Amino acid sequence: MSAHEFRALYERLREQAAQPTVDGRTGALRHLTPERVTAAAGEVRTGRTVSLAAAIDTVRGPDDPEPAVHRMTGPSPGEITSKGLHFATDRFAMNVHGDADSHLDALCHVVFNGQLYGGVPASAVTAEGASRLSVDLVGNGLVGRGVLLDIPRLRGVPWLDPGDHVTLDDLRAAEAAQGVRVGAGDLLFVRVGHRLRRTELGPWNSAEARVGLHPTVAEFLAERKVTALGSDGNNDTAPSSVPDVAFPVHVLAIHAMGIHLMDYLRFEDLVPACVRARRWSFLCVVAPLRLAGATGSPVNPIAVL
């Protein structure tokens, strides 16, 4: 995609999404109405719950040079052998926006041409945190109808190779093959097989080579009024298909349309559950941490079938 084509797409999607806040719901959150949340509860048939997150990695690797740190702070050696009451305690720290751990991107995450989503000045993000569009917007969670589109399953392969793109035609063909249709307010999950490839072949520098969505997929998101988008990869392909824009899907989804993104999820438990249930939609509960002013959060989406 040329720089001119990308800019035209960006401006068109931004104009379409330029609507006022509705009942406190900003950006694509306005599509997730109470009525649609209530309808999503009807997706529950068996009561089975499935996590869509990967285990947090604490081992350094080519795609995770600064892994999460988990340290035990108690009990002390003396407390372990002494009588009385003691507690096991620990401390956890992580880089939220890495290339290994499952996380959610807030609307303040993407700075493009000096602005955040909705024309908010980038100066709203300071060393103390974001004063606007932070993860606080979804502090009450994202609860709605989840839909999984499995692109490797559609193509008959275990995973898509780094550098490949999920296209608009792929999404529509997956809908037809799986007997499901993405609708307004949905939480759309697109499997590319990144997690399975990482498990089978080992981690690699995914900052330089990864599979993702083609930027034109953003038109699908706008057309269907999707509230959130998640993938088992980064959602963006590397190398980028757009000159001088390394993460075009992030720019289009977050910055132009106000869609929350979830990166590096894991669908290897969800796929067989959907196959057994013979359906690819479910109630989905996404509960980010309540981190005031944060640009994102570790996340553990739960599908309820």
Rank of each mutant, 00 (worst) to 15 (best):
G185F: 08
N205M: 07
V192D: 15
T216F: 10
P152A: 14
D169V: 13
D244M: 10
V226E: 00
R155C: 09
V157H: 08
D232N: 03
V180G: 05
V251M: 06
R153V: 03
V217A: 06
D232T: 04
S241W: 01
N234A: 15
S206Y: 00
G179R: 09
D236F: 00
H260R: 06
L148N: 09
R181H: 13
L154E: 13
I151M: 07
R145I: 06
R181F: 06
L154V: 13
A176T: 11
L160E: 08
A173G: 11
R153E: 15
F189G: 09
A209L: 08
I151A: 10
L149Y: 11
S231M: 04
R210L: 01
A184D: 09
D164N: 13
G212F: 02
F189D: 05
V166E: 14
H250C: 14
D164M: 14
L149D: 14
H194N: 09
A174I: 11
A253N: 05
G183I: 05
S231H: 06
S206P: 04
I259Q: 02
G258R: 08
T227A: 09
V217P: 01
L148T: 11
A174Y: 07
N235D: 11
A238R: 15
T216N: 13
V180C: 03
S241D: 12
G193P: 12
E200C: 10
S240A: 09
G146S: 07
A238M: 14
L201H: 12
G146E: 10
H165K: 10
L252P: 07
V166G: 14
T167Y: 05
F220E: 02
V245F: 02
G212C: 03
E223Y: 01
L196F: 14
R198M: 14
D186F: 04
G230D: 01
A228T: 04
P152T: 13
G193I: 11
H250Q: 14
L252V: 04
S241V: 15
G233T: 13
E175I: 06
R181P: 06
T167N: 04
G230H: 02
G258K: 04
T227V: 13
H214R: 04
A184Y: 04
D186T: 09
E223L: 09
R153F: 08
E175Y: 08
L213N: 11
R195N: 13
P203L: 00
T167S: 15
V180Q: 00
L188P: 02
F189R: 09
V226P: 01
S206H: 01
L154F: 10
H250I: 10
A173P: 07
R153N: 07
H260L: 12
H194A: 12
G233E: 05
T199E: 15
N234M: 14
